[in-house]
Design a protein around this nucleic acid. Sequence first.
DNA 1: TAAAATCGTTCACTTAAGTTAAGAAATGAT
DNA 2: ATCATTTCTTAACTTAAGTGAACGATTTTA
Lengths: 193, 193
Amino acid sequence: MQDLLFDFISKYISLTEDEKNTLISLDIFRSEKKGSILLKAGQKTKNSYFVLKGCIRAYYILDGEEKTTAFYTEMEGLTPPCVTNKTPSEYYISCVEDTILTVSNTDMEVEVNSKFPKFEIMCRILSEELLAKERINFDEFKTSSPEQRYLNLLQKRPDLIQRVPQYQLASYLGIKPQSLSRLRARILEKSKT
Amino acid sequence: MQDLLFDFISKYISLTEDEKNTLISLDIFRSEKKGSILLKAGQKTKNSYFVLKGCIRAYYILDGEEKTTAFYTEMEGLTPPCVTNKTPSEYYISCVEDTILTVSNTDMEVEVNSKFPKFEIMCRILSEELLAKERINFDEFKTSSPEQRYLNLLQKRPDLIQRVPQYQLASYLGIKPQSLSRLRARILEKSKT
DNA sequence: TAAAATCGTTCACTTAAGTTAAGAAATGAT
DNA sequence: ATCATTTCTTAACTTAAGTGAACGATTTTA
């Protein structure tokens, strides 16, 4: 399991055995059951999450309704805005499936960064990459209709449509579950003719 | 004008006179006329932009239609995804107003980062902050209707509504110009009664 | 295993955004 | 100052999403 993390890191920097051991000694690996909640709205946390196996989601509860805004699957990581902003979290994070992940906190990262400056570089590159991706995603979302967004998702993350409940997908696409049902029926109808 | 940049940087790290002079010697300050295009779709670039005065926008041309997805005003910076991904740009960047900005490129940044490691740290913090902001923005966009988005914009960036043409705002809100007009009329109507 | 809760789909109806077109208002150019 | 272009608004019509409700199907839990 740890190797999954090291393989990921090796795309950015190379680690000595010594450095690997330092990471392992931090005891960041966790195993979580489907449905377990990692973070609640209103809570403060310094934790970042990195999914090794499984799927977690971020969701708001607005007017009593769950609004899912993001999914993180294998080799995807998340530092909630509340960590960066030092504010209480606006949203919940929970496990869509049984999930194995790393949970690290800001203090650890500060420590590791000062011990191994190349970590700092990896973090910079990673967040630049994530920012670029996030912007492209946002742009695609803005410039397309719900139907196009769904078809786009079908292309880009077909696994999500299988492993995630429809009502969570719906808000991820910015619509209601009923609209997603209808939209899917519409697409099916089109593809018949 | 340079002081605007240094004031901004001073929020993250403190610079010696020596370091400031190194930055100035890079000759990154530019003055651009309203309407001038900084980047075209299809072009490759290593340039990042930081607005000191004025406003620039990013827009796609899809099916012959302009789709504006972002505005950057005073003290906001942009590294286009094409720089991070080393791919041709998907979008255009142009000046909404006469604009004074800095234009830096990846090579400069690499050089400065290796000369002054604290720059690396600033870049990491900056992109983490921007990523957190971008995610919150995206979440708000997903979880609200066009009307709510407009009202939200009115709260958060009232200046934009003044300084930017409606048709650009419309696609920024994910709708057509006609819909924005109608939506504004609807809001005005409501506030009367 | 039975009852309860959750989830997905369908339907009828309402509301709002997309589309097409026309004209007024503002802006820019000669 | 006038003409041309661009931008904004309005309107009628079409299309799609929101809403509320009902009904199986699936999953959970007692």
